[in-house]
Design a protein around this nucleic acid. Sequence first.
DNA 1: GTTAAATTGAAATCCAATTTCAATTAGGGG
DNA 2: CCCCTAATTGAAATTGGATTTCAATTTAAC
Lengths: 149, 149
Amino acid sequence: MNYKDSFREYLGKNGLKVTQQREVILDEFLAAGSHLSTEELYRSIREKYPHIGYATVHRTLKLLAESGLAAPRHFGDGHTRYECSNEEQHHDHLICTICGAIIEFENPGIERLQEQVAAKHGFVIEQHRLEIYGRCSSCLAGKGKKEKK
Amino acid sequence: MNYKDSFREYLGKNGLKVTQQREVILDEFLAAGSHLSTEELYRSIREKYPHIGYATVHRTLKLLAESGLAAPRHFGDGHTRYECSNEEQHHDHLICTICGAIIEFENPGIERLQEQVAAKHGFVIEQHRLEIYGRCSSCLAGKGKKEKK
DNA sequence: GTTAAATTGAAATCCAATTTCAATTAGGGG
DNA sequence: CCCCTAATTGAAATTGGATTTCAATTTAAC
């Protein structure tokens, strides 16, 4: 089942309605690269659909998160960003402190060690967050390539 | 050199002044357990020193962070928390989603794997943040032990 | 002691997130 | 297809922690 159907199903099961705005916002969310902030997605949508308000974008992103189709992230710039929860596998992030690029990665070895650490403290893991901040290869090579993410 | 002297040295080198408030706030910050929010530290200080304002606590914590004596953390409850940067070794956190307890841990193996991941992407690490959220042993055992951190 | 520069603290401001509320829309029932 | 009620929308207002403003005060160099 695709994203649109999943979202419609979630809405239906919860007595919520399928609206034009929600459809548009989901489409644009999927079309835009991941890790967009509410503000960025709103600006992007406003170009084609000037009648859609910021509050609706905000609320729809929260709905997507509740439905499990999107996941909120915080990378320290004060803006909540959302990414698609497409992959079944958990992933973490490399964030460039120069250009803001965000690279996803997976590492089962790290996950395994985390489980060991948790077990040692009698902890049961619900979720985790690993963010590595530094300089990406582009910024290290030609400084000034100013990739805007 | 102890914390107080380190802080005084930092202040001196930067043309800043050693004030009673800054001394008190550093003392209380060191005395209180780590991971206190600005608000929590302010409340704690206010009992003994009602004349010290929130803004001063806030500014002093930022100064401590700039001087390298404290490090700001964000654990998702919307409050900035500060911890002592005493240990030379980097550490990460286990956070209980029930009682809010925060446990520090170190794991060189995880650090090593992070370096490998970064290298694979041509990334140079500046810092990282690993937070593991879950249920601590106390909360798993006697539910209701309501440890308030 | 004098004095300029730094600091303080109460209040104001900032700003993203969130909520309010009147007008509009979805969609089940008839 | 129309009605009707609950859900939704969007502009504006509100929230809340972080930060700044600014007049009064304090530090510390001279």
